[in-house]
């Protein structure tokens, strides 16, 4: 089988052909220059799907929830694409992508596309190429795109700037861990899910979250929100807490209802425009970062002298960075 130019994959993608979608997605993931024009074409055709980010700590039940939620969305007649992100090894660059383990029963359904992606050094909970991947499945005609982030800690909030609706999953029994993550990830939720609510301490987690939401409503006007969409969102949208249990499929329908309600609320309030703008801004910054990182990688060989100077503290990191940027043609003055 010969190499198919990326541009030739575009018609297949737009028709929803799985092979074409999968191939172009790899090109996006690998960041090949050859794929850029095709991805630009796709970008212009995308923008129809409801993009839902699902995030939470490792083991909180994201994959299981995504599988159950997908079944519910399918039952409503919509097509679903899942982009599931797992971490790359910082040493070998390899990865083990295990999100499919929970999604076995979805595979036979032609209305579901599942793709695993490795972070490949990207921080923030998403992978390099995740946003392009969303464009591709969007253009391919999937009505809803679920982005499942890596298991997050406290500060991986990129998903909120990649999705229309952000769902944060918490599991009961993590006790103080719940408290610990309150400052970061919990703040980005449009919808909270408490998974595994068949477990005894679920009620405590639910009330912890509800208390936090009440508090943050009161505090919001005084706090410059790190994600400016967050502050305005709170004024219009009351963040619900949905208890779910995958053991007996409890709460899944309710969750889908809330996601749809949030999607409608974005449109009705006009906030969708702000969200799209926030996503666009984020993408511009991300794309610039990636280009810069690639440029640095290209020039790696030439850096040894500069690195030596830096390690010996003869120059400052700031000075070195400016020198590097200038020499790479990125300016760097000021």
């Amino acid at each position: 089988m010969a190499y198919i130019p990326s541009m030739d994959l575009v018609p297949g993608v737009l028709k929803g052909d799985t092979r074409a979608v999968a191939r172009l997605l790899s090109r996006a993931e690998n960041g090949n220059e050859e794929g850029r024009p095709a991805l630009e074409e796709i970008f212009k055709r995308a923008g129809r799907a409801h993009v839902v980010g699902i995030t939470g700590v490792p083991g909180s039940g994201k994959s299981t929830l995504v599988a159950k939620l997908t079944a519910a969305i399918r039952a409503s007649g919509r097509k679903v694409a899942i982009i599931a992100v797992d971490p790359s090894s910082p040493y070998s660059g390899g990865s083990i992508l295990g999100d499919r383990i929970r999604m076995g029963e979805l595979v036979g359904d032609k209305g579901v596309y599942v793709r695993s992606m490795a972070t490949r050094g990207a921080l923030g909970g998403l992978a390099r190429g995740t946003l392009e991947a969303v464009d591709i499945v969007d253009a391919a005609g999937y009505d809803m795109v679920l982005i499942e982030t890596v298991g997050v800690g406290q500060d991986e909030v990129d998903v909120a700037r990649a999705s229309h609706t952000t769902v944060v999953v918490s599991a009961p029994g993590l006790g103080d861990d719940i408290q610990a993550i309150k400052a970061g990830v919990l703040e980005i939720a449009d919808i909270h899910v408490v998974s595994k609510c068949d477990k005894p301490d679920a009620d405590r987690t639910i009330s912890d979250l509800k208390n936090m939401l009440v508090l943050s409503l009161g505090l919001q006007p005084h706090v410059p929100a790190p994600l400016d969409v967050g502050a305005r969102k709170a004024a219009r949208w009351q963040v619900p807490v949905v208890p779910t249990s995958s053991v007996n499929d409890k709460g899944i329908e309710e969750l889908l209802k809330e996601i749809d309600r949030h999607g409608r609320s974005l449109k009705e309030s006009g906030e969708i425009v702000e969200r799209q703008a926030a996503i666009a801004e984020r993408r511009l910054v991300k794309a610039s970062e990636e280009m810069l990182r690639d440029k640095l990688e290209e020039r790696r060989g030439e850096l040894s002298v500069l690195l030596k100077e830096l390690a010996a503290r003869r120059v400052s990191p700031h000075y070195a960075a400016r020198k590097l940027l200038t020499e790479s043609g990125f300016g760097g003055d000021k």
Partner: peptide
């Protein structure tokens, strides 16, 4: 799976 990961490959495990 672990061996291939350590060789720098993306390994998808289906269960």
């Amino acid at each position: 799976a672990r061996t291939l990961r350590d060789a720098g490959m993306d390994v998808i495990y289906t269960g």
